[in-house]
Design a protein around this nucleic acid. Sequence first.
DNA 1: CTTAGCACTCTCGACCGGAGAGTGCTAAAA
DNA 2: TTTTAGCACTCTCCGGTCGAGAGTGCTAAG
Lengths: 340, 340
Amino acid sequence: MTELSARRQAVLAIVVQEHIASGSPVGSKTVVEEYRLKVSPATIRNEMKVLEESGLLTHPHTSAGRVPTEEGYRYFVQHLLPDQPLAPTDQRMIQHLFHQVGHEKDQWAQLAAAVLAHSSQMGALATQVRVESSRFKHMQLVEVRPGLVLLVLVLHAGVVKQQMVSLDLAVTQDELSQVSNQLNDLLANLTVGEIRDWMPELPPLGQQVLDLVVDTMGREDSPVSEQVYRDGLSHILTQPEFAATEDAHQLVSVLEQASLLGNIFESVRSNDGVQILIGGDGRYDALRDLSLVLSRYGVDRNITGVLGIVGPVRMHYGRTIPLVRYVAELMSGLVQEWYA
Amino acid sequence: MTELSARRQAVLAIVVQEHIASGSPVGSKTVVEEYRLKVSPATIRNEMKVLEESGLLTHPHTSAGRVPTEEGYRYFVQHLLPDQPLAPTDQRMIQHLFHQVGHEKDQWAQLAAAVLAHSSQMGALATQVRVESSRFKHMQLVEVRPGLVLLVLVLHAGVVKQQMVSLDLAVTQDELSQVSNQLNDLLANLTVGEIRDWMPELPPLGQQVLDLVVDTMGREDSPVSEQVYRDGLSHILTQPEFAATEDAHQLVSVLEQASLLGNIFESVRSNDGVQILIGGDGRYDALRDLSLVLSRYGVDRNITGVLGIVGPVRMHYGRTIPLVRYVAELMSGLVQEWYA
DNA sequence: CTTAGCACTCTCGACCGGAGAGTGCTAAAA
DNA sequence: TTTTAGCACTCTCCGGTCGAGAGTGCTAAG
């Protein structure tokens, strides 16, 4: 990508903005008129032709206006987009919403998604924070019914994990409490790795419980509670009644497909700042017509979540980027306050 | 709705089935030919006319075949659909999938949704079970950092609830353990209602914790953990690029709108068997073009979840109904095994 | 380097007309 | 009384045509 003259940059910016606003190809006349340039349409046409040769614009057919390519969007976002903070009114509105939920940290992510979706009029995603390699804090065994025991594990940063298990041998609640107390002393402040390496000598029951603790600490968190799971919505869009475009169908299936999002989220976790994925950036074919504006949030590298916006490539980046950044910072603050 | 002659019923059944299969209006000739009836098309036309006058069929325009009305679908589902069990191959396939997840009860609902979606090629919904009015079993206070305490509450049926709280006064872990033990004795096997009515005399700290316990027991479960929340997907479908039909947009927004689904689920919870909502049944305008095939599952009235299928009104009820019934029974079995 | 002028291209919507599908009616047959 | 054959009629769907409109690319002059 060679350097672009100032005017050429301006033309690109205008085409991108105008296309984002209108949704249709933008012609040379529009560029001149809407932005009161002091040159003629013909001049703009020449510039646009050059931009097209650089791969930043295209036109859908001979006699339509220009449309940015994905590359054009990327150039725009990287070089031509002044990154301003979120509008103060939006800031206040969002802060207000977050003040209302308060301590219910389970609902932060959901609220973040709702706020993002509402403010951007796009799709929104948010995960809860994930705590990596947390240290053991406390455990408790509770007999639910004979032979069936519930392990409750409290880790640092207030993470609670639970696991139901049926024990081989019949035990009393007293025995369970005894084992719990013993392990509480032994394991205090250890990570799962440290426990694995160490593995102290214990009586059979203690051993069995210890194995369970290690399993449970190592296990990925899994979704819990009254969440409504949605699945297969994309199937419906294939029905002729819902004669949705190829695109709409694709969109929904991408968002339902956990593995792809998981990959992307992992890479987002490991970088700071808002990250923008336009049209899959060539790496993700399934995202061909989608853009993601994502950011990590949390506290250092150990407590992280991901949130952001999904929408068509033709998205108002000037609004969505500050929005995502702001919400991510806000969430980081909340997490800091209650976890760290 | 007056009684229908056997032949008229047969014609209705054929029209419904054929329309479900083909998606287009079905004409008198098709009815005769595909089902090898021993009458002429003209006779069928007369029958169809009567069915139309009864409000069970319509035609989209003068010279198209007939299409069932919502009322027609309802009649079909209630009177003309032989309720057969799910095909044994499907049964085996589904059982196989469920055997693999085993103890991870958090994942059952998700799996159920995935299975339903996959087997029906429609949208699927599933909630976790919800435990009503559960009895107190055990509690534990864990100091996360000075002034910040985590309450972990274990109820009967293995329900775990947690709540982070900042205490007014500084306390030691010992004091916390003492309060925990005291309350564990006092509250054993009580429901939230019983605790509220009783409310024993306690020292200030104990009182504060007791209030918190009551709050937490009474609180609705909220989604937890690494669940990816989705929101606002319907916004995207309003963009011209995803020029989805009115219907598709409606569909997605309905499924995102928690309150409507919540209402419906409540009514599903309180009835047995598979419940079918065709085109909103006149009660839900937002579901005009959608059908839901839902069922409760769980153990008696106290531990219940909801699962089912969403799709266009033109849905293959003969397949989806047995499928939903089967999965609901399977899930009930699992819940029984691990909760009751 | 910029611009006016102009021919050219392509889309889009409207309009038309014929083929096809299916109905409703009538009158005859069972 | 019920069923059926025959037939006119209606409506959609599809392809083709046409003109308006928008915008470009080129050329030649400023």
